[in-house]
Amino acid sequence: MSTDLFKETVGTSFIYRNRTVYELTMRGLYGRHYGARYRAIAGIVPDGASVVDVCCGPATLYSGYLRAKSVTYTGVDLNARFIAQVVRAGGHGEVRDLHAHTPLPGGDYLIMQASLYHFLPEPAPIIDRMLAAARKQVIIAEPIRNLATSDNRVLAAIGQRFTNAGDGAQAHRFTEATLDELIRGYESRIVERSLIAGGREQLFVLSA
Rank of each mutant, 00 (worst) to 15 (best):
Q137T: 13
I140A: 12
E122V: 12
K136Y: 10
H118Y: 15
F119L: 08
I140Y: 09
A141L: 13
L131T: 03
Y109V: 07
R129D: 03
I126T: 06
I111R: 10
R129N: 01
L120W: 00
H118K: 12
V138W: 04
P125C: 06
D128P: 02
F119W: 07
Y117A: 09
P121D: 04
A133L: 08
A133T: 03
L120C: 00
Q137V: 08
Y117P: 02
Q137E: 15
F119P: 00
A134M: 04
L131K: 06
R135E: 13
Q113L: 14
I140H: 09
Q137A: 15
A141H: 11
R135N: 14
A114V: 07
M130L: 03
A132Y: 07
E122T: 13
K136R: 14
V138N: 06
P123R: 09
E122H: 15
Y109G: 07
A133K: 05
P125Q: 08
I140Q: 10
Y117C: 04
A124E: 12
A124D: 08
I111A: 12
A134H: 04
P121K: 05
P121L: 10
M130V: 01
I126G: 00
I140V: 15
R135S: 15
L116E: 05
A134K: 01
I139N: 07
A141Y: 08
R135I: 11
S115W: 01
A132P: 11
R129E: 04
I127Y: 00
R129G: 04
S115R: 06
D128W: 01
K136N: 14
M112S: 11
R129F: 01
D128L: 10
M130T: 00
I126R: 00
I126N: 00
L110Y: 09
L110R: 06
A132Q: 14
F119R: 04
Q137R: 14
R129A: 09
A134Y: 02
A133C: 06
V138C: 09
I140N: 06
Q113D: 12
I140G: 11
L131A: 05
I139P: 07
L110W: 00
I111F: 10
E122F: 06
A133D: 06
L120R: 02
P125W: 04
F119E: 02
L110Q: 14
L116F: 11
P123L: 11
A124C: 06
A124V: 12
K136E: 14
L110A: 13
E122R: 12
P121W: 02
I126A: 00
P123W: 05
I127H: 02
L110I: 15
F119V: 03
M112R: 11
A141Q: 10
Q137D: 13
A141V: 10
F119K: 01
Q137M: 14
M112P: 10
L116N: 04
Q137F: 06
L116C: 10
R129H: 08
A133M: 07
M112G: 10
P121Q: 03
P123T: 02
I140M: 13
V138H: 06
Q113A: 14
K136H: 15
V138A: 11
